Amino acid sequence: MDWNQLGQIGAAYGFTSAIVSALALTGVAASLLVQNRQGRADQVQAIRSYYLELVRMELDDMPLYQPCWGDMDIADPHEQKQHVYADLMMNYAWMGFEVGTIPESLLRDMLAGMFTGEAGRTYWSRAGTSWIASASGSRRGRHFLTIVGEEHDRAAAAAPPTRSIVTSSPSGGAASGTSRAWRTPVGILIGLGAGLVAGSALRGRRY
């Protein structure tokens, strides 16, 4: 028996086994890293969804819920709602850009439209500092802020902001409750009438 040859064969198998073990450990580490990132992404998404729900509640009744966020240096009720809605738009753009569903070309197009109006520019002048503080911690966030700044400056240099004339009164508080109070029975009556008409015209048909 050639012990030298057997030793060489054993060393070869040992080297192969070490390579396989290293690849297996690398796969496990990569899997754990992906799971950790996915868990982190799920947590961030849950927090943002909760935040969006809070903002929707605020928009439904600004006089009731807005003071819970602190004093707002905006007196006009329409401008208050525009500010909150613009914040929702910016968060939507940021989340879409962060996960890759909104490419840079679409993001620039959205921001170009937003910053043509006075409401969009006013929002960024008020909230830009907070955005810089919150989104500048990552490379993706800094890139997003760069795009927003470029589109804002481009729109400001191109033309004065357009001002929208709002004629309807903002819904909220008692006005909102009154509106919902009469809309419900009227909607039911309209629905019943439309159902009777549609039923007589389509009787006998199967879908």
Rank of each mutant, 00 (worst) to 15 (best):
M90S: 03
G191V: 07
I147H: 10
E79W: 13
G100W: 03
E151F: 00
H78E: 08
T26S: 15
E58R: 12
Q82E: 15
R163P: 01
L196S: 10
R180I: 01
W124F: 09
G173Q: 05
L192D: 04
S17D: 11
G204R: 12
R40C: 00
R142D: 02
A175P: 00
L192Y: 05
I165Y: 08
E53W: 06
G39T: 11
W131S: 02
T16K: 09
F144E: 04
A86G: 09
N4S: 08
I19Y: 05
R37V: 03
Y92F: 14
A18L: 13
L111T: 02
L52Q: 13
M90T: 13
G128M: 13
A157M: 10
M62D: 06
G7A: 14
V197S: 09
G96T: 08
A198Y: 06
C68W: 10
P103W: 04
V28K: 14
S49G: 04
Y85C: 05
G141N: 02
T184W: 07
A24T: 10
L64C: 04
S168A: 06
V197L: 15
S179F: 10
A86M: 14
E150T: 08
F15G: 03
L189M: 13
G100R: 07
V197K: 02
A181W: 08
I47T: 11
T184P: 00
Y51N: 12
P160D: 12
F144L: 10
A86S: 15
D109G: 01
R40M: 08
L33G: 11
R126H: 13
A46E: 11
I132L: 13
G204M: 04
S136R: 00
W3D: 13
N4R: 11
A11S: 07
I132G: 08
A175F: 10
L107F: 09
A22G: 10
R154I: 01
G177N: 03
A11G: 03
F144C: 05
S169V: 14
A133M: 09
R48F: 05
L32E: 14
R56W: 05
P170W: 03
E98A: 06
T101P: 02
D153G: 05
E98V: 08
A155G: 02
G7P: 00
